[in-house]
Design a protein around this nucleic acid. Sequence first.
DNA 1: AATGAATGAGGATTCATTCAT
DNA 2: GATGAATGAATCCTCATTCAT
Lengths: 210, 210, 210, 210
Amino acid sequence: MRKRRQPVISPRKAPRQARSATLVEDVLEAAVRVLAREGARRFTTVRVADEAGVSVGSLYQYFPNKEALLFRLQADEWNETLGIFEEILADRKQPPLARLRRAVVTFFRSEREEAELRVALDDAGALFRDAAPARAIVERAMGIVGAFMAEALPAQSLARRTEAADFVLTSMSAIAEKVTARRLTRREVDAWASSCADLLCHYVEALALR
Amino acid sequence: MRKRRQPVISPRKAPRQARSATLVEDVLEAAVRVLAREGARRFTTVRVADEAGVSVGSLYQYFPNKEALLFRLQADEWNETLGIFEEILADRKQPPLARLRRAVVTFFRSEREEAELRVALDDAGALFRDAAPARAIVERAMGIVGAFMAEALPAQSLARRTEAADFVLTSMSAIAEKVTARRLTRREVDAWASSCADLLCHYVEALALR
Amino acid sequence: MRKRRQPVISPRKAPRQARSATLVEDVLEAAVRVLAREGARRFTTVRVADEAGVSVGSLYQYFPNKEALLFRLQADEWNETLGIFEEILADRKQPPLARLRRAVVTFFRSEREEAELRVALDDAGALFRDAAPARAIVERAMGIVGAFMAEALPAQSLARRTEAADFVLTSMSAIAEKVTARRLTRREVDAWASSCADLLCHYVEALALR
Amino acid sequence: MRKRRQPVISPRKAPRQARSATLVEDVLEAAVRVLAREGARRFTTVRVADEAGVSVGSLYQYFPNKEALLFRLQADEWNETLGIFEEILADRKQPPLARLRRAVVTFFRSEREEAELRVALDDAGALFRDAAPARAIVERAMGIVGAFMAEALPAQSLARRTEAADFVLTSMSAIAEKVTARRLTRREVDAWASSCADLLCHYVEALALR
DNA sequence: AATGAATGAGGATTCATTCAT
DNA sequence: GATGAATGAATCCTCATTCAT
């Protein structure tokens, strides 16, 4: 694959004033609507700006390019999901595996709700797979699950726990993505989540016994 | 999402003559090369035709549009993988779970080898998620795994076995896709495959006891 | 100065068929008209294509980019001028200095006629200052004047003759460019040419005596 | 050539206060840096203002448009060079032709040092070839060389001396521009300057004998 | 007087597809 | 059947300038 210029993805400037913050919000919301209504192929910066009632120039004042806009959408979605995820996994009032189960189910549900956007984003993107900010999110996720593993698998080495965190995170998100793209009902998604949780709990248990 | 004209995906005509068959082969091989060399963004029909030493017009004689060409690439890859998969799962000389394990490992390896193409294909398209021919492949896959389940879970209802087949297939392919996109070494991919196989075997065993 | 990608300047494909050759001619003529009528700033590929009664796409079939089109204009002009220049300088029926004088005058006149285009090109350009094809033209010019020097200064070393050729060529073209940009009358330009010829003849004579 | 709105080139207002004078200086220096660092194509008013640590609005307070800013850069450079030039030509302690020779050499050296800026300026503009302030500079130059000619060619008519001044000035600057654009070493430029001075001295001598 | 956010026309270039030869 | 020139809408992005604050 020929070297492709990795698009700049970080925001061009942080909006300082209230007006700008609103503008950025407007653009992001408009972007979601355009993506949903027109699909990834017709997702253009001009259309987004129009939808936001803003000039293209203004859009480019805050997003250096189209990729950055898409990435921001993606990142916001991920971060929100991660927030929920973290909250559940860190709740020491429940036994670890119960938390894991709940977290998995919640994750699937959340993914289901965002499926529309996520699929559109997938179509549009994959443009930032390796971008630094993308890695930052992965790291945040690993941090969250890693902390959980430290608690659930205290006897294991850090390396092994990291491996476990990666496995759980990767499997769960891979399956959730694929399944929620099918637009199933909440009940159906819950069933998948439950099966998936079974497996992952079993995985952690098995590791604990090693 | 606005109704988008679902692109025609089936070949415009089946190549009857040897010359045509060769042409189609040439085009497909050229397409793989262009995808690898230029990336999804620069994958154009003219470039593919050039690379194949064929005129664009001829390309359009056998592929109604660009999507059809991409789909064909994808389908060929899937079918090949499925062929291997079937062979292993159907081999009655081995106990079912051993076969499942071997199949999973082989699947991961095969996905790893095709990762380059698959990722490029993903970038280029996802244009045919719901196309009829895509479903045909899914059905073929379900048939293969369903047959295996009939043997491994003879006591379960067809519905439950179908569900199991879907679960195994979906989980395995979701995880394999995500993991092999990381361009790991064969050894690393084998480790993932092994963990994944553990879980899926456990899943089938658990089902058998219900 | 930050590294700027040097634009590709060589023609994208050689026009094979009569139709294409006509198209290229049409485009070049249209380009001259657009440059003259609208000025360098409004010289756009779309406008040129329109003026030529051709689609932009067609223009890009034969010129990889705007620079290449401009360069072609420039090169054609230079080559034509050089042709005349060569003819005069190589005409052994006249004594060398008489030829040089005639060549200089003819060069100034030719430059005067092309001034409109050249000035517009200058404004537009500098886009191709260092491109390889530009150097080819310089080499052709050096060849022509070098041959003349071999005859006029047979006693001098090659290095010195090359130096002399460079000096004559550079001085003459620098002065001619600057002067003809002033849109003087033919008579006025002739006066300049004559003064310039005086100097250059003196220069060659002085060199011959060294 | 279609009538193009000749850009306003004179400063919008003369900076009265120290603060303004500083601002104008800052902007000019920033402009030089931007031109050098980013090239003519990326020379924008916003970028210059940023580099100067000033708002675009402020920039437009003192320069009515981009052209005026570029022109000011050009004019400053010219005036500086002219100052040196004048100093040498007016120095009655030396014989005229010796002064002319020294002036030419100094001019070439000065042009060599400014070549970077001059080329960038050419690329960016040449937008003000006929602007009134540009003529003022030409007139200043003509005044300087004219005074020299009055001394060197006292027997000639004013018209002839003016012609001579124009010839010397035009030839020298044309050749110097072209040669220094080649980024030669100081020694090489000196050689060109010397040859050029030879010719121009010869020109003046020949005129004196008429 | 200073700011800098907002504008939006304008430009270069690409590419899926057609259709005259 | 094969060819490949021609099409032109569509895309991303820039930037001189203004004007509300």
